[in-house]
């Protein structure tokens, strides 16, 4: 892999807190290595800002290996930036060229209010899980793990849906700020397993109700969510969600 250095112009959204109005600020960064991660480039910029007695840019990040779901930057009009199936923390600077201008914004959605700069409040996702994103089994109740076989195809599909990291890129990508991909991933994960079956109907209805209450928009099937998802959660899960919801609401018994 050829390594190179680059100079870049960054246009970054700055907003003191949820009450004040935000604006774009322009920054120049120099001698950025193509081997750096995007967030390491932000570290370099922040160190420079601190040294110059300026306020560093606030952004959410933690594991820096694409699994915790904390990082959430909207880069050049795309959640998590230009690479497919990727989080911001895994994006590396070789995705950019010397002289590029990069625009960085927070997730934009009514249900995700800005806390500061690029940091947003995603607690709506936790409340959707509280509404029904679980299997009601207390510690100590379980039967032997191999007592109920699960066919491999269902188990694999369930796992693929459970891979969701709750980052919110699907909402950020959607023109309606819909959370259908997030909700469908959880509904699919649990309803595909025999253990999740007893609460299938109540779960889907409760989660959808909470989703609406949080102010997420409706789904109009543009599939932008799937394209932006770092874990490649499939939109077919939304089909499954709709089917589960219909079954739950149109059948007489719960």
């Amino acid at each position: 892999m050829e390594h190179y250095n680059m100079n870049l112009t960054l246009k970054v959204w700055r907003q003191r807190n949820s009450k004040e109005k935000g604006r774009f600020e322009t920054y120049k960064v120099e001698n950025i290595s193509s081997e750096m991660s995007f967030l390491e480039m932000f570290d370099v910029l922040n160190e420079k800002l601190i040294t110059e007695d300026k306020e560093p840019i606030a952004f959410d990040h933690d594991c820096r290996e694409g699994i915790c779901g904390a990082c959430s930057m909207y880069i050049n009009g795309k959640p998590h930036g230009p690479w497919k199936a990727n989080t911001v923390c895994q994006l590396h600077m070789r995705a950019f060229n010397d002289g590029d201008t990069i625009v960085v914004e927070p997730w934009r959605a009514k249900a995700f209010p800005v806390i500061k700069d690029l940091v947003v409040d995603r607690s709506a996702f936790d409340r959707i899980i509280q509404a029904g994103g679980f299997i009601s089994v207390n510690t100590g109740n379980a039967v032997d793990a191999n007592a109920i076989p699960v066919d491999k195809e269902s188990a694999d599909k369930s796992f693929a849906a459970a891979a969701c990291i709750g980052c919110g890129a699907c909402v950020a990508a959607c023109k309606n700020s819909s959370a259908m991909l997030f909700v469908s991933a959880k509904v699919a994960h649990l309803s595909l397993l025999p253990q999740g079956s007893p609460e299938r109907k109540t779960r889907v209805v409760a989660m959808i109700n909470q989703m609406d209450k949080e102010g997420f928009g409706a789904c109009t099937n543009t599939n932008a969510c799937e394209a932006a998802c770092p874990k490649e959660i499939l939109v077919t899960n939304i089909g499954r969600l709709n089917h589960e919801y219909m079954t739950a609401t149109f059948t007489a018994d719960k």
């Binding site: 679980f134 299997i135 089994v137 510690t139 100590g140 109740n141 379980a142 039967v143 032997d144 793990a145 191999n146 109920i148 076989p149 699960v150 066919d151 491999k152 188990a155 694999d156 369930s158 796992f159 459970a162 994960h189 649990l190 397993l193 253990q195 999740g196």
Partner: peptide
């Protein structure tokens, strides 16, 4: 046992175990 009951999708063989 507890994790499987909670719906943790562990890897399985074709026989479902």
């Amino acid at each position: 046992d507890q994790c499987v009951a909670q719906g943790v999708p562990f890897a399985r063989e074709y026989g479902g175990l």
